[in-house]
Design a protein around this nucleic acid. Sequence first.
DNA 1: GTCTATAAACGGATAGAC
DNA 2: GTCTATCCGTTTATAGAC
Lengths: 206, 206
Amino acid sequence: MAQGGGSASATRPGKRERLVSAARELVYFKGIAGTSLADIANAADVPVGNVYYYFKTKNEIVGAVVRTYEDQLQTLVSEVERRHQSPEARLEAFVAVLVEHAVAATERYGTQYGCPYGTLSSELAMRAEGPDPLAATLMRIQLDWTEQQFRAMGRADARDLAIELLAAYQGAAVLTSTLGDAELLTRRGQRLQQWIDELAVGRPAR
Amino acid sequence: MAQGGGSASATRPGKRERLVSAARELVYFKGIAGTSLADIANAADVPVGNVYYYFKTKNEIVGAVVRTYEDQLQTLVSEVERRHQSPEARLEAFVAVLVEHAVAATERYGTQYGCPYGTLSSELAMRAEGPDPLAATLMRIQLDWTEQQFRAMGRADARDLAIELLAAYQGAAVLTSTLGDAELLTRRGQRLQQWIDELAVGRPAR
DNA sequence: GTCTATAAACGGATAGAC
DNA sequence: GTCTATCCGTTTATAGAC
């Protein structure tokens, strides 16, 4: 299968990586359905038909993009765990990074976009007939890790809190992109961090 | 323009209404991009090419769908205001209806779908170049009404609370559809109502 | 006013030359 | 292993018959 899988030590950028990278960007901005293979190939500076040498189907490219996000999330939480000791500090840092990413995308381009994980997962869930495991993965990774932090804080309702936190962030991202208000996400992120703080201080059951 | 606009007293179902109704359903389940004019015409029992007699373009149909949702939201809040006096009761009823709608859609079909307003608005925001007023309308209507209720409760931070409430609901809808967990939305809805209760009781600033 | 037939463009995907 | 040329289905949209 071509020249090495994903994170292998390649000798150069590699067309496969370029394709996935371009696909990720385009899918984030225009959605899966709104992104054609020609768009991807064009953005990656790869001949159109040549795409099929690296991926047998469009869905396979989307799968690779999801895989990229999985890795990114894994790296993200590892980094957060390395830099912060307490679960509450880790959660706050996690929220901060998510918000930063979205804001960074906004500054690079004109309009306001939502959470990459959320929009991609939503579209995957919609295009699938029944429940789609691929659509759930990214959310579940975040959910599991967040729950773990709340549990480390001694919360018995860790799962519910994890759902509450992620839902709050995802919803804020939706409002941000639909209203086109970049500041909304930042403000909501700060309030979420405040909420985490309050949970950490005491108030056992809420 | 054919036989009467929207809510006029027509003599029969009418093809235009059938088209919009079919479009609304399909767009909810498959998204705008995932729904073709042939799908819509087929579901509405209208010849494919004939669609263009009623709508000049696909975007126009989508616009009509959005318009439908606007009316539905207007009816919804009017009904809620008629049935409930206190702002907190109104907010709780509003949340209850939103959750009910999503759950009803789940029971009619197999899989779990998100909030119709949210998914549609998100897709509209994504397909537009710059900020899209159409994408913002549905959210803004809900936001304004919700803010109004919080203000009636004497909250100075009414706008922030409105954003918090809607974001919490939208996020729960995203998680629900991506995880395929129907119960999640119901549970989150109950917690939101509880939260509204607590705000009503006292705790002025939070 | 209603519908059929069809155009024009684009999408994903393939065969096969280099 | 890399790229070109192309096929075929689908999609939006139109022209024009009834």
